[in-house]
Design a protein around this nucleic acid. Structure first.
Length: 390
RNA sequence: GGGUAGGUUGAGCAGGUGGUGAGCUCCGCUGACUGUAGAUCAGCCGUCUUCGACUGUGGGGGUUCGAUUCCCUCCCUGCCCA
């Protein structure tokens, strides 16, 4: 592919136009490894691989940018080894843009294996229990060794249902770590995004947005969502952040989202970039996203279904294989089940994003959302109740 | 024909030498999953009128207040000997 180096002295450049659909934007992010059309979804490749997929599979599915992980790669094979081997792009054979997460999510998801203090986080490695120290500065160092196009600041996300004092403390610590992260940068060819926290409290979110947007980051991320709050709370929080960001011209990245309907919720509130494990994780567990809604191919009824996973899809799995075949592969525990299901779900998700870009251009965003909601709302309506302060 | 070890809920097992065997692993059925400790996890998996009840340890018979357990007999399977 052709590289599109940023057009100015910054490591990335973002241009966009406001659409007529509320806060939604159509844009283009230029990185050292190519351009990304936004709104865009990044498949998650935590350990230098989007599970079950080759870089060729990702290209065929329409992927433009993927995500890798500081915490996992620093433990194995180590950032220094990847650097010796030419950086993450060469190591994994993906020459497109890569964003690396900072390890902040592991502060949350590996809560029982870590200890947080003001200087950083100490993990007991989930691999061998060895003590691992991650500070904002080390997270930047690791990501510079990996050579990703976009690095993320180390942050602390918490269950938004925790007492306000704890949500506030984590937010303020995230702000201090954000400033330190900027000071730790040494590469000029790698972007750095700051992360807004503050749980689901509007005042805290406004404060966090002001703090993060006030720093010279190349992009702004919204963190701490899709961690147990309701759909309504996520939407309300994105409203608050969108309002607080106003006409800030930087790219806006919603971390860890989402489901098909979440994309609509976030895009119309100004989000440009997404990542999520959901399409690939549920694929490996038999759940396929289709134009007919969610299908669980392990269900008995699919064993005799000769049709494609999704008649509206042209991916390798849909073009060549039946639901009955996939159902068999899952039952037999065959590895091909994971690849074909992942190929399909990533294709579906990226096609949906492409459709969203298309309807933002022609003004039929709401119609597309309604047609997707008709197939997916039943599942998303089974919503969790709003979080209660404990 | 003789000897010997067995026969437990779809499969494979555990347990049990007189006082309620529905316990495990597969298989099967369903659900969950949101900046990946996840090819993972959870529930169900004899029957029914399912917060409970009933049935079930190869078949039949016997002893006993009570049998999966003890006795008799038959059937089936593995192995050894003829």
């Amino acid at each position: 592919m052709t590289a599109h180096p940023p057009t100015d002295s910054r490591p990335v450049a973002f241009s966009f136009r406001q659409t007529r659909t509320r806060r939604a934007r159509l844009g283009r992010l230029l990185t050292p490894h190519g351009a990304v059309d936004t709104p865009q979804f990044m498949p998650v490749g935590t350990q230098a691989t989007v599970k079950a997929l080759t870089p060729g599979d990702l290209r065929a599915a329409g992927a433009q940018m993927i995500l890798g992980n500081t915490y996992h790669l620093s433990l194995r094979p180590t950032a220094e080894r990847i650097a010796r081997l030419g950086g993450l792009h060469r190591f994994m054979g993906w020459d497109g843009p890569i964003l690396t997460d900072s390890g902040g999510f592991q502060v949350f998801s590996l809560a029982h294996l870590r200890r947080v203090d003001d200087d950083g986080v100490t993990f007991a490695s989930h691999l061998d229990g060895a003590e691992q120290r991650l500070t904002p500065e080390r997270a930047i160092e690791i990501q510079e060794l990996l050579g990703s196009d976009v690095a993320m600041t180390l942050d602390q996300l918490v269950d938004p249902g925790l007492p306000a004092s704890e949500v506030t403390a984590a937010m303020e610590r995230t702000h201090r770590w954000a400033e330190r992260s900027i000071g730790a940068r040494s590469r000029r060819d790698q972007a750095l995004f700051g992360i807004i926290q503050g749980g689901v409290d509007p005042a805290l979110r406004r404060a966090s947005t002001a703090a993060i947007a006030g720093l010279p980051f190349d992009g702004i991320a919204v963190g701490g969502l899709s961690v147990g709050e309701s759909k309504a709370e996520m939407a309300a929080t994105l409203d608050v952040v969108g309002e607080a960001l106003g006409d800030d011209p930087r790219v806006r990245y919603l971390m860890g989202v989402g489901s098909p309907l979440d994309f609509f919720t976030a895009v119309e509130r100004g989000i440009d970039l997404f990542d999520c494990v959901l399409p690939t994780r549920v694929a490996r567990n038999g759940q396929l996203w289709t134009s007919e809604g969610r299908l669980n191919l392990r269900n008995a009824r699919f064993q005799d279904d000769p049709g494609p996973i999704d008649p509206a899809c042209a991916c390798e799995a849909c073009a060549n294989h039946s639901r009955a075949y996939l159902a068999h592969l899952f039952r037999a525990g065959e590895l091909l089940a994971y690849r074909l299901a992942s190929v399909h779900n990533v294709t579906y998700t990226l096609s949906l994003m492409a459709n969203i870009r298309s309807v933002l251009a022609d003004g039929t965003f709401d119609a597309l959302r309604e047609s997707v909601a008709a197939r997916y709302e039943r599942a998303d309506r089974a919503d969790k109740p709003p979080l209660r302060r404990r």
